[in-house]
Amino acid sequence: MTTVEYDQRDGVARITLADAERGNPLTPAMVQDLGRAVRRARADDVHVVVLSAAGRAFSVGGDVSAFAAADDVEQMVDDMAESLHRVVSDLHRMDAVVVSVVRGTAAGAGVPLAAAADLVLAAASARFTLAYTRIGFSPDGGSTLLTASIGLHRALHLALLNPVLSAEEARAAGLVAQVHPDDELDAAVEDVVAVLRSGSRAAQVAAKRLLRETATPAAETALRRETLSIRARAAAPDGREGVSAFLGKRPPRFPSSAP
């Protein structure tokens, strides 16, 4: 069963994370399904991509239980990060304007995945948190690219203190373009799609390329550095303790922080 649904009509591709019961965790299977859907949208040469999720959460982030069960967690995390980074790169480089729609929680890699879109629309109830360092991991998924949109010190605040941002706080920080009441979000998304579809596609493609290339000229290098860092952190004592503590629902006791 696919964990990602794809629908395309009238120049608009709708990609939906569909593991709603589990909160749409970014498992290896989901990332592979997501990659196929994004590549399909590129092949279909659509004008707009709408990336959304079914259920109570946009994405709770990586599947921490899978990290604990892996025989070789370093290799597993490397493979996961590289696959996710290919998806992020494809979203950045595709001609279509990408609109992400966030309801509920976007945590861990769910945050940079939502931010990989060109426009982020959020329900008033949406919440955003990186939470990587809480389990002894360093950020991936394009988290370091957030410095281009929200600034260095806001990004450090998110990465080091792991606050949970409300939708309005995320909008004020520059992460979210629009916030709407939950029951009005679907209509707002369709309004944005209609505006984009009525505009000059050629001009939109040019604008997207110019702005992205100026804001993040070394994006591929940054993503590779994220992969190398998170694979090392996942296999290190702090990462193993963070995963164990998360699954055991207890505060972590990180070896590197011991007196």
Rank of each mutant, 00 (worst) to 15 (best):
L121H: 00
L121D: 01
L121A: 04
L121K: 02
A122C: 02
A122M: 10
A123K: 14
A123P: 00
A123Q: 06
A123S: 08
A124R: 14
S125K: 03
S125G: 09
S125T: 07
A126M: 09
R127D: 04
F128D: 02
F128T: 11
F128R: 09
F128N: 10
T129N: 06
T129P: 04
T129D: 08
T129Y: 03
L130I: 14
L130G: 11
A131H: 03
A131N: 10
Y132R: 05
Y132D: 03
T133N: 10
T133D: 04
T133C: 05
R134N: 04
R134W: 13
R134L: 08
R134G: 09
R134D: 08
I135D: 01
I135Q: 02
G136M: 14
G136W: 04
G136T: 08
S138E: 03
S138A: 08
P139E: 00
P139M: 13
P139G: 06
P139V: 05
P139W: 01
P139L: 05
D140E: 10
D140T: 15
D140G: 01
G141Y: 00
G141D: 01
G141I: 02
G142C: 00
G142D: 03
G142R: 00
S143R: 07
S143E: 08
S143V: 02
T144H: 06
T144W: 12
T144V: 11
T144K: 12
T144G: 13
L145V: 01
L145G: 03
L145E: 00
L145H: 02
L146T: 08
L146M: 15
T147G: 12
T147S: 04
T147M: 14
A148I: 07
S149L: 07
S149I: 10
S149F: 09
S149T: 13
S149E: 05
I150R: 12
I150N: 03
G151K: 11
G151F: 13
L152I: 13
R154H: 11
A155R: 15
A155I: 14
A155Q: 11
A155E: 11
A155T: 15
L156D: 05
L156E: 00
L156W: 09
L156T: 14
H157W: 12
H157Y: 09
L158W: 10
L158N: 01
L158T: 01
L158E: 01
L160K: 15
L160M: 06
L160R: 15
L161D: 06
L161K: 14
N162C: 11
N162F: 09
N162L: 14
N162R: 14
P163K: 06
